[in-house]
Nucleic acid binder design. Structure first.
Lengths: 239, 239
DNA sequence: TCAAAAGTGTTATCATTACACCCATGG
DNA sequence: CCATGGGTGTAATGATAACACTTTTGA
C-alpha cells in the first residue's frame, strides 16, 4: 500500500530524552544503539515515526517502551527540531520529549531485535546520531532550568533519604562541582516545610543522619499558595 | 506533480501567535480571517504549511509576512500541537511560535487575496478556527510566565517612557486588574539600574513625569552577572 | 581516639511589603 | 485652588550569604 499526496510532506518523528537518577544520585541518559543505517551502530535517543492516529505524546511513550522497555512515566514536550538537513534520509521533523526518573524504577530491556539499550552518565555520553547531541544539550539545559524552581528531585530519591543525599542530587543535576553551602541548603529546604522527619540512619560509621520523607500534600498546598502570591504580587523578576 | 510514500504522512504547519502592544500598553493578538473551508469566515492565527526545504522558524516568518505583512521580528517556539483530530482535513501537526511586539512598528496589510487581518485585544478575541483558542491560551500563559523573569516589555514602549507607562504595561500583560503597588514597583525597577533618566514630560495637566530610556547595555551586563550568580549559588527556588 | 559525615550558631546585609504622605502642573 | 497624576519616607519583617564550629557514630 502506498500513499499519494499533491504536495510533498515531511516525516514526523518523536524522540525521548530520558534522564535517570541512579543510586548515587548521578544523572544518566537512556540511549539505544542503532541497528540500521543511517548511523548504524551509533547511539541515539529512543524514538521513531508518529502513527497517523496517535497523539504525539502517546507516540513518544510507545516508541520509548518498544525500544527500551521503559514505561509508566511522565514526559514533557521539550522542543521541535526541524532543520531541513537534520536527517540524511530526507525531511524529518522531530518532536522531542524529556523526563527525569529514578532509573532503578525503570528497568531497561533490549528490544526484540536485540538492539542495545543503556544508561550513560550525562558527563560521558558517546557520539550521537543525527542532531541528537544538540537535542541532548537542549534537554539538559531545560532540566537544569526546571530543577531550580520546581522540587522535581524529591520523588526520585528512595522513600526516605538524608539531606546530604538531596543535596548531592541537586549538585549532580545542576552539574555543580564546587558544592552548595551545606548550612544554607539545609535551612532553605527545611524552611519549605515539605520534608517530614521519619527517623535516623543506623549502622553507619559516622554520626547517623536524619531521614526524611517528601510530603506531597504539603508540597501541593505550597504550590497553590505560591501561585496565588504570584498573581497578587505581579512582578517577580530578580533579574 | 504528486508524491508517493510507503507510509502515510501527516501534514506539518506552523502557526504564529503575535502579541502586539498598542499605544495604551494594551495587549492585542494578530488574527486573520479565513477565506476557505474548513472554518471559512472564522478568525485564526496566521500560519500555513511548511515547505520541504525551509526551517520551521523560517516557515513561520514567511507565512506571517505573506498573510499579514508583519515582518522583522523575533519569534520563539511555543509548543507543537498534534492531536489527531485537531484539523478536520486530516492529520495536521502544527508547530506554534509566538512573539510580543510593539504593534505600531508592525503595520498590517491584508494579503493579496483580500483576507482580513486585524489586531484584537486579548480580552476580546472572537471565536477561533481549529484548536486555535487552545493555542492562544497556551501562548498567553507563556507570555505571562516569561514577562515575570525577563524585562521583555521595556523595548516595546516608546523610546522614552514614564514609570507609569511601564507599570501599565506590566499590569496589562499580566492581566492584573487591581494594580501593582506603585512604590514597590518603582523601587524595584529603578534598583535594577537598566533605566536611564532622560528628561521630563511637558504640557501635561499634572506634575510632569520623568522620562526614561531603556539601557540595553546595562541590561546585558546584568543578565550576564545574573547567570553567573545562578551558577555559583545553585539553588534558586522560592517555591 | 580518630576519621567521617551530620548538624548548628551567628551575624551582617539586603530585599520585600505595606501604608501614608507630599509635590508639581494646567485649567 | 483643585483635580490629576507623579513621586517619596519609612519601618517591620524576612531572606540570604558566609564562615566556623560542635556532635555523633563505628572502627
Amino acid at each position: 500500500m502506498s500513499y499519494t499526496y499533491d504536495y510533498p510532506r515531511p516525516s514526523v518523528t518523536v524522540d525521548c530524552v530520558i534522564f535517570g537518577l541512579d543510586a548515587q544520585q548521578k544523572v544518566n541518559v537512556l540511549l539505544i544503539q542503532r541497528k540500521n543505517d543511517p548511523f548504524a551502530g551509533q547511539w541515539a535517543m529512543p524514538g521513531g515515526f508518529v502513527d497517523m492516529d496517535e497523539d504525539l505524546e502517546t507516540a513518544a511513550l510507545r516508541e520509548l517502551e518498544e525500544e527500551t522497555g521503559v514505561h509508566d512515566l511522565f514526559i514533557e514536550q521539550l522542543f521541535t527540531f526541524g532543520a531541513p538537513d537534520r536527517d540524511p534520509r530526507g525531511r524529518v521533523i522531530s518532536v522531542a520529549y524529556y523526563a527525569l526518573v529514578n532509573l532503578e524504577h525503570h528497568p531497561i530491556e533490549a528490544a526484540s531485535d536485540a538492539r542495545r539499550v543503556q544508561w550513560f552518565p550525562v558527563n560521558d555520553v558517546p557520539e550521537l546520531a543525527f542532531d541528537h547531541a544538540h537535542i541532548f544539550r537542549v534537554a539538559l539545559e531545560r532540566l537544569r532550568a526546571k530543577v531550580r524552581y520546581q522540587p522535581i528531585g524529591f520523588e526520585l530519591l528512595p522513600p526516605t533519604f538524608t539531606l546530604t543525599q538531596l543535596q548531592n542530587l541537586y549538585e549532580n543535576i545542576l552539574g555543580i562541582e564546587s558544592g552548595l553551602n551545606k548550612r544554607n541548603f539545609r535551612t532553605r529546604i527545611l524552611k519549605m516545610g515539605v520534608l517530614q522527619e521519619v527517623g535516623v540512619q543506623e549502622g553507619v560509621a559516622h554520626r547517623p543522619a536524619r531521614l526524611y520523607r517528601f510530603d506531597r500534600r504539603k508540597y501541593e498546598e505550597l504550590e497553590k499558595s505560591k501561585y496565588e502570591d504570584l498573581i497578587r504580587r505581579g512582578l517577580d523578576f530578580d533579574i
